[in-house]
Amino acid sequence: MSTEPREIPKALLDRFRPSTSTQIVDRRGSTVWKITIPAGKFALKVGYPIAETPDWPAQEWTALAPAREAFVLNTLHRTPVAYGQWDEGTWNCQPWQEGKNLYDLWERHRSILTLPRSEEIVQCCEAIDYLHKNGWVHGDIQPAHLITGDELNPHASLIDLALARGRPVFDRFDFPYRGCLVHYEAPEISEAVLSGGLITPTKASDVYAFGASLLMSVTGQRHVEYPDDADRADQRRAIVAKNHRSIKVGGAWGPLIAAMMQRDPDERPSVRDVAIEVASWST
């Protein structure tokens, strides 16, 4: 088994013949390129297994993630997302989503202590609500997965749907849900991961993750305090044992984010409730 690929596999180069390609992400288990082909700009994702190291166990599911994501996307969009298998795993090629992720977009708020535009949040809510209405829970909401447009092209896109749950997926591309990026994980998810029990992301855990994403994007702070060098198990223990940090965000934003991160999932608003609340501030 080879190391992480740094080049587009030859079979995919031959298939798509991109006129331009730029590597966007190269991480354990996947690489993403922005490519230009006659049909436009696309994200080409390639997945492969993660080899065992002294710090990380081996992971096979990453090889299946691009095909699984394509399956989810194809239940949501009229334009089919191409996907398939290559020597070490699976791949997909999906339309490129233009814009900034939530964390990068709100850098200005972290540096000059202003509050975000309500329109940006409503657009994010609509993207998440569309997913929920179509029978899916994202399971991995984080600032990097919310791509926002600008005033000339207002929109928000929810990307990286490989972990989404809710509707049946082809068995050959499916894998168990193991939690998400811990910086945005709801307490009930962290507790389930630690206990080794059945882990089921919900609309309520998506709302929690969205609230934690807003907190991180506006303040630069994680929802729960733990050392930067803590391993994932210790991070999750902190999330289960502690309440979220004090939310020091001005105006109506602070109470709303706090409501989204209620420890009891039943007490959190729906993402539609959040959209209605935020939209009312600009009327």
Score class of each variant (00 low, 15 high):
106 W>N: 00
78 R>I: 13
136 W>F: 13
44 L>M: 07
67 A>H: 07
102 L>Q: 09
8 I>H: 03
47 G>R: 01
90 T>Q: 10
151 E>C: 05
178 R>K: 13
56 W>Y: 12
53 T>N: 07
171 D>T: 11
195 S>D: 12
160 D>Y: 11
90 T>H: 05
187 P>H: 06
221 Q>L: 15
19 S>D: 09
109 H>T: 13
136 W>Y: 13
94 Q>V: 04
1 M>F: 09
278 V>S: 08
167 R>Q: 14
132 H>C: 08
263 R>S: 14
182 V>Y: 01
29 G>Q: 11
69 E>T: 13
240 V>R: 06
29 G>P: 03
137 V>H: 11
35 I>D: 09
124 C>P: 00
4 E>Y: 01
22 T>W: 02
144 A>T: 09
183 H>S: 11
124 C>M: 13
94 Q>Y: 05
197 G>F: 01
57 P>T: 06
209 A>H: 05
199 I>A: 10
89 G>I: 05
85 Q>E: 12
246 S>W: 14
36 T>Q: 03
273 D>N: 15
120 E>C: 05
211 G>T: 07
118 S>Y: 12
111 S>F: 09
198 L>S: 11
266 D>Y: 13
202 T>W: 02
275 A>Y: 01
226 Y>N: 04
189 I>G: 06
223 H>K: 01
98 E>M: 13
129 D>T: 05
192 A>P: 01
186 A>Q: 08
153 N>A: 06
4 E>M: 00
272 R>M: 15
147 I>N: 04
164 A>F: 12
177 Y>M: 10
281 W>L: 15
61 W>G: 02
247 I>C: 02
140 D>A: 08
5 P>Q: 07
95 P>S: 14
11 A>H: 10
86 W>D: 11
220 G>I: 12
145 H>L: 14
230 A>D: 02
89 G>M: 00
23 Q>M: 11
196 G>T: 11
258 A>L: 04
16 F>Q: 11
78 R>K: 14
35 I>Q: 08
210 F>H: 03
182 V>S: 13
252 A>E: 02
97 Q>A: 11
276 I>V: 15
110 R>G: 05
98 E>F: 13
100 K>P: 03
149 G>T: 09
150 D>G: 00
52 E>P: 08
8 I>G: 04
240 V>M: 00
151 E>R: 07
24 I>E: 06
6 R>F: 01
171 D>H: 09
4 E>W: 00
154 P>G: 01
189 I>N: 08
62 T>V: 02
9 P>S: 02
7 E>D: 10
275 A>Q: 09
211 G>M: 10
261 M>S: 14
165 R>Q: 14
8 I>W: 00
104 D>R: 05
221 Q>Y: 14
118 S>M: 13
200 T>S: 09
133 K>C: 15
95 P>T: 12
141 I>L: 00
130 Y>D: 00
121 I>E: 03
254 G>V: 05
192 A>Y: 03
212 A>R: 01
26 D>C: 05
169 V>N: 10
89 G>D: 08
197 G>Y: 03
47 G>K: 02
54 P>R: 08
238 A>L: 06
124 C>G: 10
70 A>H: 02
268 R>Q: 06
276 I>R: 15
195 S>V: 00
192 A>I: 08
215 L>N: 03
174 D>L: 04
235 Q>N: 09
15 R>Q: 14
203 K>C: 00
135 G>C: 10
247 I>V: 15
32 V>L: 14
